Simulated assay, not measured.
Amino acid sequence: MLKLRAASILDLKLLRLWDTKQHIIDCDPDSDWNWEIELKRQPVWREQLMIVLNGNAIGMIQIIDPYEEETHYWGEIAQSKRAIDIWIGEEEYLSQGYGTIAMGLAIARCFQQPEITGILVDPLKNNINAHRFYERLGFEFLEERIFEGLECYVYELKKPL
């Protein structure tokens, strides 16, 4: 059984380990998540969730309100959006459908809020597997953008009517 639970400082060692794995680096090469600090913070604009399969953490999802997020990473944006980052940390759980299930849970969580009309993701331009993953989930390509010096594709999943 797969579920999402709030990340905590107790996940620090595991998240640091995942940050050293090549498949994670390939998706986010320049990122420093500052886990030691961020796992202790709980800003109203962010949820950090561990993906848990049968009691074992296998990945992470972050859901943010890009309008309220303090760095303004997404720039000018409507208040009716959410943005999601996801990664499966353990290689043996890649390409097994767990990311799809976890994204389904995260998407449902976002769209439970009546004011949310769309969810954004920003995979690297060269991450063809991520593009296919998001497209299978119904995300539509919006544009190519540079975020923090990295070429990304922006996709959006619109709330079903």
Rank of each mutant, 00 (worst) to 15 (best):
G118E: 13
A7M: 10
T20H: 07
D85T: 14
I101E: 07
E36C: 04
L105H: 05
E143W: 01
W35E: 08
F111K: 04
D28Q: 14
K158I: 06
K21Q: 12
I37F: 00
I58N: 02
G55N: 13
D30C: 13
I119T: 04
K159W: 07
I86D: 01
G97T: 03
R136M: 00
R46N: 07
R16I: 01
E92V: 09
I9D: 03
R109I: 08
D32Q: 13
I37H: 11
N127I: 00
R41I: 04
S31M: 12
F141A: 08
N34M: 09
P66F: 05
G99D: 10
G138L: 07
G55Y: 10
E151S: 14
Q62E: 13
R5S: 00
H23N: 06
I84W: 01
I9R: 09
L49S: 06
I25E: 09
W33Q: 10
E140K: 15
S31T: 13
I107G: 00
I64W: 04
Q48F: 04
I9Q: 01
C27P: 06
E91A: 14
D65S: 08
Q62M: 11
P123H: 09
R5K: 14
E148P: 08
I51S: 00
Y98A: 07
E90M: 02
L157R: 08
V44R: 08
P43F: 05
E92H: 10
I77P: 05
A6V: 12
E135H: 05
D122F: 11
F147Y: 15
Q48C: 03
E69K: 02
D85R: 08
F147I: 12
T71H: 11
L12W: 10
L161T: 01
I61G: 02
L120F: 04
M1L: 08
M50L: 13
I116N: 06
N129C: 09
A83H: 09
I37E: 13
E148D: 11
W45R: 02
I63N: 02
G59Q: 00
